[in-house]
Simulated assay, not measured.
Amino acid sequence: MLALVTTIIIFLVIVYVESTRIEIPLAHTAVRGARARFPVKLIYASVLPMILVRVLQANIQMIGMFLSNAGMTILGEFQGQHPVNGLMWYIAPINQPQDWMWWLADLGHAPWEILLRMGIDIAVMVLGGAIFALFWVKTAGLDSKDVARQIQRSGMHIPGYRRNEQVLVRYLDRYIPRITIIGGAFIGVLSVVANLFGVVGAVGGTGLLLAVSITYRLYEEVASQQIMEMYPFMRGFFGKE
Results as ranks from 00 to 15, higher is better:
residue 32 R to S: 15
residue 111 P to N: 10
residue 79 Q to M: 07
residue 34 A to I: 06
residue 39 P to D: 03
residue 47 V to P: 02
residue 230 M to D: 14
residue 240 K to G: 01
residue 77 E to H: 12
residue 73 T to K: 03
residue 70 A to R: 08
residue 143 D to Q: 06
residue 123 A to L: 15
residue 96 Q to S: 14
residue 11 F to E: 07
residue 47 V to S: 07
residue 75 L to S: 01
residue 187 I to L: 15
residue 157 H to L: 03
residue 174 R to K: 14
residue 109 H to C: 11
residue 106 D to L: 01
residue 150 Q to I: 04
residue 164 N to H: 11
residue 223 A to P: 04
residue 7 T to Y: 00
residue 211 A to L: 12
residue 20 T to W: 07
residue 68 S to H: 02
residue 157 H to K: 08
residue 137 V to L: 08
residue 219 Y to T: 04
residue 239 G to C: 13
residue 119 G to E: 01
residue 178 R to A: 14
residue 61 Q to F: 08
residue 169 V to E: 11
residue 17 V to N: 03
residue 58 A to Q: 05
residue 195 N to H: 08
residue 221 E to G: 03
residue 201 G to L: 00
residue 65 M to S: 09
residue 72 M to A: 12
residue 8 I to Y: 08
residue 213 S to E: 02
residue 183 G to E: 04
residue 189 V to Q: 00
residue 181 I to N: 04
residue 160 G to M: 02
residue 155 G to T: 06
residue 82 H to V: 15
residue 116 L to Y: 07
residue 229 E to S: 11
residue 144 S to C: 07
residue 165 E to W: 07
residue 121 D to G: 10
residue 180 T to S: 10
residue 135 F to M: 05
residue 5 V to K: 07
residue 146 D to I: 07
residue 99 D to V: 04
residue 41 K to P: 08
residue 158 I to G: 04
residue 151 I to Q: 12
residue 61 Q to L: 15
residue 148 A to G: 03
residue 209 L to I: 06
residue 130 A to S: 10
residue 70 A to M: 12
residue 188 G to W: 01
residue 46 S to G: 09
residue 193 V to Q: 06
residue 179 I to T: 13
residue 170 R to K: 14
residue 172 L to I: 06
residue 130 A to I: 05
residue 163 R to W: 07
